[in-house]
């Protein structure tokens, strides 16, 4: 419970003022954002800011439920980063599948959805080149198959890869956009689902 207070304070005092002043996010389709858990938010990924922006889009009351799925190798890499990522941000650490089964790699994400969390998921798996959608990994298909009635909310982000790109630590102000798309439904056809997903993320 204590960490929730820390998370709220972090977003209210640091993330939101920073996003408002230094970045400036223009949101379109805000009314399509999930209003309760469980829900799955999927987005393209270019910057460490992406997860923070997506969490900040949600109303404060949903913040305790919002959990970005993130690389275990990187975010659990050292003690302080691990403490900050798992406690303050509340990430779901996902280990690279590396030959293991889907259930093993993405199991924690499914469990979070089962528990009613709003999971933020980047189907590219990693941060790519700014404004170029990378190859989408198919783990997302396994995930939606576990909960076929779950609303999947696609959000296309633009500009954050300029504000804070991969491999840099200094944010530089630019205006950014977030387009919240029509919810995606699982209809049983993996290739159609992946095509619809790629379209809504700007591929």
């Amino acid at each position: 419970m204590g960490y929730i207070v820390l998370r709220l304070a972090f977003f209210l005092l640091i993330v939101k003022p920073f996003l408002l002043l230094a970045v400036g996010i223009n949101v379109r389709g805000r009314n399509r954002l999930p209003v309760a858990g469980p829900a799955l938010i999927v987005a393209n990924h270019n910057s460490h800011l992406d997860a923070l922006v997506l969490m900040a889009l949600l109303p404060l009351r949903l913040l305790p439920r919002a959990r970005p799925a993130a690389s275990a190798e990187y975010f659990l890499g050292n003690r302080w980063r691990a403490w900050f990522a798992t406690r303050v941000i509340g990430i779901i650490p996902v280990a690279a599948s590396g030959g293991r089964s889907r259930a093993e790699a993405l199991g924690p994400v499914r469990d979070a959805l089962t528990a009613g969390d709003i999971v933020i998921f980047f189907p590219e798996g990693t941060r790519g080149e700014p404004e170029r959608l990378g190859q989408l990994k198919t783990g997302i298909v396994w995930l939606v198959q576990q909960a076929p009635n779950l609303p999947v909310c696609p959000i296309r982000l633009h500009g954050l890869g300029k504000v804070l790109p991969k491999g840099d630590w200094l944010p530089v102000p630019f205006f950014c956009d977030a387009w919240v798309g029509e919810p995606l439904r699982w209809e049983g056809d993996p290739s159609r689902f992946m095509a619809a997903l790629a379209t809504s993320l700007g591929g």
Partner: peptide, 15 residues
């Protein structure tokens, strides 16, 4: 900020 968002900028010029 709006101007720099509109025009093309080089990634090497971030600093």
């Amino acid at each position: 900020k709006e101007y720099l968002t509109l025009i093309p900028t080089r990634q090497t010029d971030r600093r």
